[in-house]
């Protein structure tokens, strides 16, 4: 009961600010893949794993005044920024929720581009396949992104690093 909302608010509290819905989606998915208990259901979409449930919950948090959403007009699209409000902090103080410490991992992910996080989250989506097949599958489902071998290697490194930190 409101536990899933509280978990997301804990995430926003640690992230301080999240820029971009795509980045938000991929960060939550990546953390969930490493066992952080977010309950939102993700499906594979055009731009990688995506959760409608997550987006709706974030909208609820915005409507409740727990999260502040700022819309920034870019050249031909909008970008959204999210921060926890004082009311959100007050709620978290009243409503205790158990979450593993993932502050360092969140900071690590925040430093990456949304394009790179799309690659990492897509690789994790196919994590049950053998390593070579994962790369082949990524190239097959994302031909337009033209991910390089270096990016793939960097993504594997990040996955390894997260696995060490979060397990």
């Amino acid at each position: 009961m409101l536990e899933n909302h509280a978990k997301l608010m804990r995430f926003f509290s640690e992230a301080k600010e999240v820029t971009g819905r795509k980045k938000l989606q991929k960060m939550v998915y990546i953390l969930q893949s490493f066992g952080i208990p977010f309950e939102e259901k993700f499906q594979f979409h055009f731009y990688g794993p995506y959760s409608e449930e997550l987006m709706l919950r974030v909208e609820e948090l915005c409507n409740l005044g727990f999260i502040h959403e700022e819309k920034e007009v870019k050249s031909n699209y909008f970008q959204y920024h999210y921060t926890l409000t004082n009311e959100g902090t007050d709620f978290l103080n009243q409503f205790s929720v158990e979450m593993p410490n993932c502050l360092e991992s969140i900071e690590l992910l925040q430093g990456k581009s949304s394009r790179f996080l799309e690659l990492v989250s897509t690789m994790l989506y196919f994590k049950d396949l053998p390593k070579d097949d994962v790369e082949a599958k990524v190239l097959a489902v994302k031909p337009k992104q033209k991910y390089s071998e270096e990016e793939m290697a960097e993504a594997w490194n990040l996955i390894g690093e997260l696995a060490e930190r979060l397990h």
Binding site: G20, K22, Y50, M55
Partner: peptide, 23 residues
């Protein structure tokens, strides 16, 4: 005693979203 939220249900409505958020 149960709080039920709109995000608990598996339906959505159309939102254009952000660039590369969803198609």
């Amino acid at each position: 005693l149960v709080v039920d939220s709109s995000s608990d249900l598996p339906y959505d409505f159309y939102r254009p979203g952000e660039e590369e958020e969803r198609l």
